[in-house]
Simulated assay, not measured.
Amino acid sequence: MTELTHLDPEGRVRMVDVSDKQSTLRRALATGCISMQPQTLQHILSGQGKKGNVLETARIAGIMAAKRTPDIIPLCHPLMLTGIRVDFRPDTENNCIHLEAEVRTLSPTGVEMEALTAVSAAALTLYDMAKAVDKTMEISRIRLEEKEGGKSGTFTRRSL
């Protein structure tokens, strides 16, 4: 098993030094899901909520969160992100919205945390904007699906 990189040999927390790593194209894809009552999903999809377009507001929140990940998650490096995409796939059969975030950079370290943070913030924003009509919504299955680039290479959870 690989050792934890954010601990020094004495067990103290540290920010990993990436100054000797090459800047390469790195990409990460994360997903999540928010389940809700059928009428809540229809309310969101109508785009007519009192707070405005729920999905577009959540998209902006996800993009902003990816950019601010080092301010939220301790020990994350500030990165120049070259691309952020946040998408939603409504699922009327299961009364949920599937979320997906893809983040890219040309940096010496990966963007897994940025993609996961984008999905998390987008899901939380969906909850916030619809909680007046449904407090039973449930955010689940936030996970890394793919990552490319860097020393550890490619990771794929599933085929897309």
Rank of each mutant, 00 (worst) to 15 (best):
A66S: 09
A66C: 08
K67D: 06
R68K: 11
T69L: 03
T69M: 02
P70G: 01
D71W: 10
D71S: 13
I73G: 02
P74I: 00
L75E: 04
C76F: 05
H77W: 06
P78C: 08
L79A: 09
L79R: 08
M80A: 15
M80P: 15
T82A: 03
G83R: 11
R85K: 09
V86A: 06
D87P: 09
D87S: 11
D87F: 15
F88R: 03
D91Y: 08
T92P: 05
T92F: 07
N95Q: 11
C96D: 09
I97R: 06
H98P: 12
E100H: 13
A101R: 06
A101S: 10
E102F: 06
V103Y: 00
V103K: 00
V103H: 00
R104Q: 06
T105D: 02
L106T: 13
L106M: 15
L106H: 14
G110N: 00
G110R: 00
E112G: 01
M113S: 02
A115D: 00
L116H: 01
L116D: 00
T117Y: 01
A118Y: 10
A118E: 10
S120F: 04
A121D: 01
A122M: 09
L124F: 14
L124I: 12
Y127K: 11
D128L: 08
M129K: 07
A130E: 05
A130M: 05
K131R: 14
A132L: 12
V133F: 11
D134F: 12
K135Q: 15
K135H: 15
K135W: 12
E138T: 11
E138V: 10
R141K: 14
